[in-house]
């Protein structure tokens, strides 16, 4: 169906992609008066799903109740939910343009796909718990708060790198 070269293209220079990312962040500041984020959307979606499955349980839980609000508006009509929707679309478009769409498990050379998926799941759980403690993840805290010179965000950022480098040795088999 196609004639031209469809091999994956190389990534952009990290400084230039960082500059682009910085401009997106800046436009969020200028247009919305807030930064980027990701993890909050997952809490909103989980709260909505829990409310659909077990309404009483969800409204009694202080965390979900915060996200559900007074019930007049769906918690899915939320800035971060729509932003993450855009992230999915934007990531897809970029990968499609560079022929990098691939159905595959990305992993280090010394680990099986099955174990990689288990570790990915565990990592997701730990990461989300950390993000909920910290009120944000690498996007909402480190990137946004970093650019705003937010005190808590800089402490958080240092801790992310600290925790990562401290744990890296113990999980080297996953990646090296």
């Amino acid at each position: 169906m196609n004639s031209s070269d469809h091999s994956p293209k190389p990534y952009w220079n990290p400084y230039l992609s960082g500059f682009g990312l910085g401009l997106v962040l800046l436009s969020a500041f200028v247009i919305m008066g807030r930064g980027l984020g990701a993890s909050g959307a997952f809490t909103s979606v989980t709260a909505t799903v829990m409310h659909a499955i077990a309404p009483a349980h969800a409204t009694n839980n202080a965390l979900y109740a915060n996200y559900l609000g007074d019930g007049t508006q769906s918690p899915l009509l939320d800035w971060l939910v729509f932003e993450v929707l855009g992230v999915l679309v934007g990531g897809f478009l970029s990968a499609a343009l560079a022929n990098r769409l691939k159905f595959a498990v990305e992993k280090g050379p010394r680990i099986s796909s099955g174990s990689r998926l288990i570790f990915a799941f565990v990592g997701g759980v730990i990461m989300m718990i950390g993000a909920l403690f910290a009120l944000g993840c690498t996007s909402g805290q480190a990137l946004t708060g970093g650019a705003l010179l937010n005190a808590g965000s800089w402490v958080f950022m240092m801790c992310v790198f600290g925790g990562g480098y401290a744990a890296a040795y113990f999980f080297r088999k996953l990646w090296l």
């Binding site: 169906m1 196609n2 004639s3 031209s4 469809h6 499609a96 343009l97 022929n99 769409l101």
Partner: peptide, 8 residues
């Protein structure tokens, strides 16, 4: 012909 035909 810039990208492959996909289901998307």
């Amino acid at each position: 012909n810039r990208i492959r035909h996909t289901l998307a």
